[in-house]
């Protein structure tokens, strides 16, 4: 049982053989269906708002907000976690997944206080998304300014 470099390498192979892989095909079907349904709900809200006569821009904002509200509510009820277990990326990738990633730490860490718990940890998952999203947008903006 020497943990030499060679044995470590051999062990990595053993681990790979002993570890079951995820059922990727089944997971993809579930992700496809749930992700597709969430987008259809978004489409339904969009179409409905358009009929009410909202502008293109406002429609987008309202659609996102409604989806974000539904996901935050489902997170509070403990339903979004269950959906995520079933759907994987199907419920992570839509904007509802972003909402879930903000609401779940907010709820989980409120016991540690409204400032040091909820306040400090609310972006524990979504913080990097905002950081790198905004950074990328700044770079895009600068490049656009010089190239246009």
């Amino acid at each position: 049982m020497e943990s030499s470099a060679k044995n470590k390498e051999l062990y990595q192979d053993m681990v790979k053989k002993a570890s079951p892989n995820s059922h990727i095909f089944k997971n993809c079907i579930k992700a496809f269906v749930v992700g597709g349904i969430i987008c259809c709900i978004g489409q339904f809200i969009t179409n409905y708002l358009k009929e009410l006569g909202l502008t293109q821009n406002d429609t987008g904002i309202y659609t996102s907000s409604v989806l974000i509200f539904i996901a935050a509510l489902m997170t509070g009820l403990g339903l979004y976690g269950k959906l995520g277990k079933f759907a994987g990326a199907g419920s992570i990738v839509p904007i509802t997944g972003f909402s879930n990633s903000v609401a779940s730490p907010a709820i989980e860490f409120k016991k540690e206080g409204f400032v040091t718990g909820l306040g400090a940890k609310i972006f524990i998952v979504a913080g990097p998304v905002i950081l790198y999203g905004i950074l990328t947008s700044v770079i895009v903006g600068i490049i656009y300014y010089f190239l246009k």
């Binding site: 892989n21 995820s22 990727i24 997971n27 993809c28 992700a31 496809f32 269906v33 749930v34 992700g35 597709g36 969430i38 987008c39 259809c40 978004g42 995520g84 759907a87 994987g88 990326a89 199907g90 992570i92 990738v93 839509p94 997944g97 972003f98 990633s101 998952v125 979504a126 990097p128 998304v129 790198y132 999203g133």
Partner: peptide
């Protein structure tokens, strides 16, 4: 299209062991 984009995410999760936070980013 929506389902298709999610499938790309799912393949990344299962094949590369990326966490959901990394997928979002």
């Amino acid at each position: 299209v929506g389902g298709g984009i999610c499938v790309i995410g799912q393949i990344l999760i299962d094949k590369t062991k990326m966490t959901s936070a990394r997928i979002l980013v």
